[in-house]
């Protein structure tokens, strides 16, 4: 049992969100506050470590453990918006809690900067907090503007689901949480081919060709079922589908025009917030048509 409060969290932003995905942060903060989750700013944090895992697992563990140790000083659990950060923090938290030898090794490094990992807190992703702490029924109750006029598709991405051993709050083969959260807004969540397929983001910079081909497949499958929008919960997946959509259209001579919304933007609309409040203007692919449909449907 976790003795720490489940309505008050330290918010862990990571690097990608402040770098270029502010709409996700803005809409997440608005929605969480509205649903009664209190967010406390971390006085200090650093990269979760994940980007450096390929070159140095030890660096990744030290960076993740630093963040956990800093949060432990505040005696609060961490809420992350990025599944990559959640994955990294959860994994290292579990490993260091269970493996004494590794804990001592990593603490040996942390000691150099006066920190110590003790293993007293948990890290959760936004999705997990919405499901486990707020509750899907409570979200349904909070909806004032049901989005019954919308048919959308969801994309979980990999790190919110895998590896199951470390993340394990949903089924990686047939995940249900995000679907249930989308449907809680009143919208229909469509099934489509290869829903759990990777967005390709980690391959950007190593092979753009492979990365963009994977993103193209996703957009094609989502278009096939006439989804009005694609709903994401990860800054990297969002960059692949929203920021790169035009590039993919040009490269493969296709037209998609599918707006890609951060889940809290969709939820925010259902909670009665305006597109301005939810930073819809930050989206690269215009959601104008979708917002018109929402307005017409609400009349």
């Amino acid at each position: 049992m976790n003795p720490l409060p489940n309505s008050k969290y330290l918010i862990f932003l990571g690097c990608a969100i402040p770098y270029r995905v502010s709409a996700y942060e803005i809409s997440s903060r608005k929605v969480l506050v509205k649903l009664g989750v209190e967010l406390i700013e971390m006085p200090e944090f650093n990269c979760c470590g994940l980007p450096l895992d390929p070159v140095s697992h030890e660096t990744m563990m030290i960076l993740a453990a630093r963040n956990l140790a800093l949060a432990e000083q505040q005696s609060l659990n961490i809420l992350t918006l990025c599944p990559g950060c959640a994955g990294s923090l959860k994994k290292v938290n579990k490993i260091l809690k269970e493996d004494k030898t590794l804990r001592e090794q990593i603490n040996g490094h942390l000691k150099e900067s006066g920190l110590e990992f003790k293993g007293t807190i948990e890290a959760k992703h936004l999705l997990q907090v919405l499901k486990e702490d707020v509750g899907i029924d409570n979200i349904k109750k909070a909806v004032v503007k049901p989005l019954t006029m919308l048919k959308v598709a969801e994309h979980n991405g990999c790190h919110i689901l895998r590896p199951k051993e470390y993340i394990g709050f949903d089924d990686p083969e047939d995940p249900q949480t995000l679907k249930a959260l989308v449907e809680a807004t009143g919208a229909t969540c469509l099934d489509y081919i290869d829903e759990t397929e990777c967005c390709g983001a980690p391959s950007v910079g190593v092979s753009d060709k492979v990365a963009l081909q994977l993103a193209k497949d996703k957009l094609s499958h989502v278009k096939q079922v006439d989804a009005q929008a694609l709903i994401t919960i990860c800054p990297f997946c969002h960059i692949m589908y929203d920021t790169n959509e035009l590039r993919i259209e040009k490269m493969f001579n296709e037209v998609y025009g599918i707006p890609v919304l951060h889940y809290p933007q969709l939820l925010g609309l259902a909670l009665g917030m305006t597109p301005e409040e939810l930073a819809f203007s930050e989206l690269r692919v215009s959601a104008k048509k979708l917002l018109e449909q929402v307005n017409e449907g609400a009349k």
């Binding site: 502010s22 942060e25 700013e41 200090e44 030890e58 960076l63 150099e112 900067s113």
Partner: peptide, 23 residues
């Protein structure tokens, strides 16, 4: 945008934590 200011990283402390890493 109405967002709280970004916490400053602590490069000195990070460098100390990572100085023993082979990479």
């Amino acid at each position: 945008l109405g967002l709280p200011s970004l916490p400053k990283g602590n490069p000195e402390s990070i460098k100390k934590s990572l100085k023993g890493v082979n990479f």
